[in-house]
Each structure stands twice: as structure tokens, then as C-alpha cells.
Design a protein around this nucleic acid. Sequence first.
DNA 1: GCCAACGTTGGC
DNA 2: GCCAACGTTGGC
Length: 150
Amino acid sequence: MSLKGVCYCFKDMSYWLLKSDPSTYSWDDLVRDKETDWTGVRNFQARNNLRAMKVGDRAFVYHSQEDKDIVGVAEIVEAAKPDPTAEEGEWVSVRIKALVPCGRSLGLEEIRNTPGLTTMVLVANSRLSVQPVSEAQWNAILKYTKTTLS
DNA sequence: GCCAACGTTGGC
DNA sequence: GCCAACGTTGGC
């Protein structure tokens, strides 16, 4: 691979946050499965975010409901394709794989109280299940959670 | 195209 | 379990 190609990949990487109720599908489930199709998204904004994902993009996995924290990092390994679980409508899913767990989880409360993270979509619109994360937010969260990507 | 009614999600 | 916020649906 050329150096130009490498640089392009880095420059072009996008970051995301995927929300899941752990009683339905948790980070531990993803680690067990290693990879999974992220199906079941039935919201237009979330679907558009799924469509914008590229192979190699990274996403935090956030546990909604009882935990309310960011727990791990996943990588997009297949871009959007028709969601096989959708009986009607143009819904899509992407394939993700577990990369690393966070060194420690980062709770919603702490996100709300951390300068630089208060602008996260999670804070303004906690209901959106597939959200973009800025590069600055991404790096800050890696730092706060003591998470190292190999 | 507006808006009331309804359903769902998720924080508390 | 409650309820606020949000998104979708459907009547007009």
C-alpha cells in the first residue's frame, strides 16, 4: 500500500457511537460473537448515519437503559447493505467487529460533566441510536477511558 | 402541509 | 414504573 493511501485512510476515517440496550445485545455479546450485523435500526436519521459509514470507521458501543455508559470500541467491517430483518422499507445494517473494551467505562453523567463532551449528540438527543462522534470527542473519550487501540 | 394523536425510547 | 422527548402516522 502506498503512503498516500495510508494517509488518505486516516484522514477519511469517521467516528460513531452505536447505542444498544445490553439486555437485548451487549458489548459482551459482541465480544462473544466477534462480529455481528448491526440490524434493527428503524429511524431515518440513524439509517442515514449507517449509510455514511465506511469500512475502517470506528464506533463506540454505548449501553442504554440500565448502564448508560460507553464500554467498548468496534470497527466497521462491511458498509451498509439491506437489513435482512426489515420486512418493509429501505432499512440497512452494517457489519461490525469488536476491537477493544474500554479501560474503564464512561457514564452518561460523567459525559455531561466533562468539558469537550457536553456537545455530544448523546447529551442533546439521547434517543438517536446511531450517532456521529467528532474526532476531538473520540480522542478525549479514548483518553478518559484509558483505552488503547493497537 | 399542518397538527393532533399515538407509539417508542431512554433517563430518572 | 413514570414521564418527557422525539418521531411517525393519518385526518383534514
